[in-house]
Design a protein around this nucleic acid. Structure first.
Lengths: 229, 229
DNA sequence: GCCAATTTATGCGGAACGGTATAAAAATCA
DNA sequence: TGATTTTTATACCGTTCCGCATAAATTGGC
């Protein structure tokens, strides 16, 4: 019974075959009763819930309430709790990727880039209705990374991806002369990454925004200050 | 088993308002059946368990098994799960404080200090029978900090305490001429703290020891390198 | 030896957990 | 309209959870 994955080569089999743009209403209606919720919005709500209470402490009742759908619909659409967590985390990575992208615009100066990156991080990590939520990668996903290799791989990708993106931007700064040719771009990128992660941790501990901003300023001075030129 | 020396000579009738020693083995036996476990060792095992699986995912059965005592004894000695967690965290802070203390010895040079601090952190965060456990403050306690003000206060104290200890050591380096008088000690201390926290995070994500060591070397160069003199 | 005090051992009880069975509802297709 | 397909809604199942009640075990005091 129940859902063997018969690949009968039928089309339209895939659930969300193609996001294909941010258009919400796909005009082609499937056969049966239409769903009464938007999967993307529901996933956003699941993400918010996981961000606040973590994986283990979030029950399926919490999730189905926050997402506005019942348990069976949840299972049909997203699979079990762990699968939902994985999809929520991927959603988070996608969202934050888009959030940080403008700061990496090559047209900005190095200092402007760092200022934007840190400001974006502070705003993101301090957001939350019930207090600052920190970073999903640093706080929530990393906790599960110990027991779950798949989550661990995603966390690793998130960390090294940030390192790489920043390092690339630093290399650009060397080319443009903003940084000395002897600057160790990978090292500077890791320092910036570590600053972001520390800001996430401190935000979760309710360190005041002004202190986080000062930490960011200090890091900019250390990383891109006169000593590096 | 057990058998401590009965000091039958001294009547010691009074309920001993204050023996008040920090001596571990109090020779005076209390009235009833003696406990069959050592609270300190049990707490250590509880700490290990919490470090591996976090707060919510650790059941009282897990704890009582790991600690080698039954649930009622656990409750009588340590209170409920949350109280046990708090005590385990305090135990962790005490242990790690002692672990890092030698590195802060003022007789060491600044670079030696940083090398020892980072080496200690790497060893601590990579330890664990079931894989690297990271830092209890960064991973486990910070997760609970959102919903629990008392834990949050402890996390804050751990973070700012590390900042302060390092800053003090940097100020010493300014006095000794190892650092320029214009160095921002608080900023450098936060950078070192952030590096430690990032190492903890990366350890949990199974980043290789060699990479962590390279990150430490890079951080030392950035913080105490020629540019700061 | 008997009593009081304290800890250990067993196991219960109500609640919450994750996951699913089952049937009603709402759409398309014929 | 009736059959088919898909989603929704309700309610349940077995397990695990936390915390505690209860009784046996082990000590010191008299």
């Amino acid at each position: 019974m129940s859902v063997q994955k018969s690949k009968k080569a039928g089309p339209a089999k895939k659930v969300a075959d193609k996001p294909a743009g941010k258009v919400a209403a796909a005009p082609l209606r499937k056969r049966g009763r239409p769903r009464a919720f938007e999967p993307e919005a529901a996933l956003r709500n699941a993400l918010d819930t996981f961000r606040e209470t973590g994986f283990a402490a979030t029950s399926l009742d919490d999730l189905s309430t926050a997402m506005g759908i019942n348990r069976p619909s949840l299972y049909n659409t997203f699979g079990d709790k762990r699968e939902l967590f994985l999809r929520a985390y991927q959603q988070y990575r996608q969202e934050t990727g888009a959030l940080f992208a403008p700061a990496l615009d090559p047209k900005l100066t190095l200092r402007q880039m760092l200022e934007m990156v840190f400001a974006t991080a502070i705003n993101l990590y301090l957001s939350g209705e019930n207090g600052p939520r920190g970073c999903f990668t640093v706080m929530t996903a990393a906790s599960e990374a110990m027991s779950d290799p798949e989550i661990r791989a995603l966390v690793q990708k998130a960390i090294t991806g940030a390192d790489r993106n920043l390092a690339e931007r630093f290399r650009l700064a060397v080319k443009s002369g903003e940084l000395s040719a002897t600057a160790d771009c990978a090292a500077l990128a890791q320092a910036a990454s570590a600053t972001i992660q520390s800001i996430a941790l401190r935000a979760r501990a309710h360190v005041a925004r002004t202190e986080l901003e000062e930490m960011a300023r200090n890091a900019i001075e250390l990383i891109a200050g006169p000593a590096r030129r």
